[in-house]
Design a protein around this nucleic acid. Sequence first.
RNA 1: GCGUUCAUAGCUCAGUUGGAUAGAGCAACAGCCUUCUAAGCUGUGGGUCGCAGGUUCGAAUCCUGCUGGACGCACCA
Length: 743
Amino acid sequence: MAKYGFKAPPETTASEISAILNFNSTAGIGGKRIAVFKNLLDKVKAYNKAKPGLSGRQPVLYFEDLFKAVEAKGPYINFYVKKDLFSALIIRSILKAGNNYGRNVSGKGKTIVIDFSSPNIAKPFGVGHLRSTAIGASLANIYSFCGYKVIKINYLGDFGTQFGKLITAFCFFKKGFPLSEFKDEPIKFLYKLYAGFYKEVEDESAKSTDARVKIKEWGGKDNANASATMSWRSFLETDARTRFKKLEFAMGKNKKDLNGFLKDCKSNRNLDNTKMDININSIRNIKGGNRNMNTPENYNKNGTNIDIDRDELCNFCNRRKDGAGEFAIWTRFRKLSINEFKRIYSILGVSFDYYEGESESAVFAGDIVNILLNTQIARQSMGAIIIPLDFGSSKASGKNKAENKDKYNDNNDNETAVPGLLAKSDGTSLYLLRDIVTAIIRYAKYNFDKMIYVVGSEQSLHFNQLFNIFKILAENKDKLKGGHSLLAECITGIEGKLSHVKFGRIIGMSTRKGNLVFLEDYVNEAKEKALNKIVEVTDDGRLWLHMPDSAKDKPSYYSTEIKDTALKIGLGAVIFNDLKTRRITDVNFNWDNVLSFEGQTGPYLQYTTARINSLISRICTEYGVDKDKYIKNIRSKKKAGEDEADMLHIPGTDEDFGDIYSIIKYLSLFSDVIKEAADFSEPSIVSTYLLELASLFNKYYQNYKLLGLEIETIKKRLLFLYAVKTVISSGLAMLSIPILERM
RNA sequence: GCGUUCAUAGCUCAGUUGGAUAGAGCAACAGCCUUCUAAGCUGUGGGUCGCAGGUUCGAAUCCUGCUGGACGCACCA
């Protein structure tokens, strides 16, 4: 007998128990277990609703229909369910719902903005970005499954002091950095420039070397700003600072009216209602195996059709006061980088609703700062512009306290420890300010109920500051009422709706040679491993059993099908590695672990679905069952009738029923698992569930041979297999892990 | 120093809104492919749930203190 126990504390009254038995959700009793129990009862109700002879209006639960007995034992009340009936109910509801099985409406009518991936355009797309990308993409699917309208935003790191440095390096490092490289591999080129800049600045001799000498060494002409007394290091730093300042100045010239902009955003807010469908469709596409894989090989680099004229670009390096040159160079950096990122995302099978950049908020940064200064919410301190924050204040020793006072506070009237820094003393913006502006713009645009930032835990302080600033702003909203009522509205709306979905670091991630790993190389390494594995199997003559006919004809290591399969396996391994543990846990990176395809891995799950699929095909072929027609037949039945009960009902006396039942019990939890994953913004709840489900199935698979059973018996197993496949595939799609028909 | 966060088997981790005997995978060892895909399955060994108190009928789970690690702490993002 199956036991469904849930906790009932000793003080539980008879009426409370009665309330439970009457299926009213009584919060506070039973917690998680009552949720499972209630879910089960909902299914019974649904079943009864459809049962012939019963009125649909007033579903009646015949307790004895589903339960054999109830007993009180210790702190528990145990319900003993009739396993065979329960199993038929669950299989039926999975077949009916198909890919929508487990979907719920907890987020209906709510909009959630998910800010994830967010690569920096000056740096290669690395493993840290993969983690944010994998977690974010998966949360988008999970929330979407819970009925939320999801808006996926990629917030590019396309602005900030570092871009001054990059432009400086671009303009002065001529030798060793040919522009052809910039055109072919923009990200790697920019990364080299970035690294080159730091290498130069950190070089001890740069402190004393005459800047003019170095400029010539790098292939440049004399530069008016390099005076005789200026060292190379100081020249580079000054030049970089100036260039970013000019860039931001140039950006400010595109400035729009803040109030007008917010008004426009608000009025256009509801025009775009298609986003939810996009999320749903992206899941469907993956399931159908039709995900359009853009492999590095077939990607057309000419797609990055951006005019790069060497001389023209070099002219941009020449100094103009209005920053037009810096702006032109930066624009090209940005475009090339975005194209490159899109190529990577297409390999990963991840999409975004919007690409935004920090630069977009820079347009309004000045306005916001002025407003905050005028309302005295922000103020100057040591030349910089800050918002005093009182959290995280130091309980340090007297000495430190005194130091803090001196250091952080011009007026010594406040013991603020870590203020929010909005702008530097040279007047340029900092990213906290840009995040404030961005949140305001997004709220005006999307009117979100929730916005999550999927960013590493090392940025906790930053987001704490950001959230606290909105708290302070909301408290001071009256000061904004006058000329800024729309701004005030946004600020009040935002408060309390932001959250930082943080994740741990990747430790020890480097190539085997010890350098930084580019994501693409990482994926390729996993793909290569999968290829080798396939070839290993080939030597045994097995591969061709499972590959498409076209591949059988061309048993080549390089056949497209094999390569595609290998890539999907590699992606499965790599993505799952980032999703299998709780977000907060640091991932100890180890090539052997990531490239292992055994045990708790992505390929294990992919293998399980391929295996089920293969078995389903074999059954259909050998028994002459048209699977699609058969399942469609069940699906189309509006009411459950006796014939359907026969098709679904697996007798409890069957030898394999015990194992089937334990799998079905697990399948019945899917919806709760998704909901829980959404509640905690934790994809690993789904991945852990899938591993356990796959493990249960593989045990069943190993223990019972189905081919050879009587046709009526095996047809019921066929529906059961289909149900298992449906749930695992659904879960994999939710994690952005490619599904393989065979492998 | 302050803040955040983590500590469960040799290793990597589940289990944490208090509940029944703390579970997987990897590694080790012993088995299972003429039979539905062995990227699988079965079995064995392996635990003071970091330490010490507290709350409770009951604690890996909640509270306090301690120890150890990771990350962060004024013009980088």
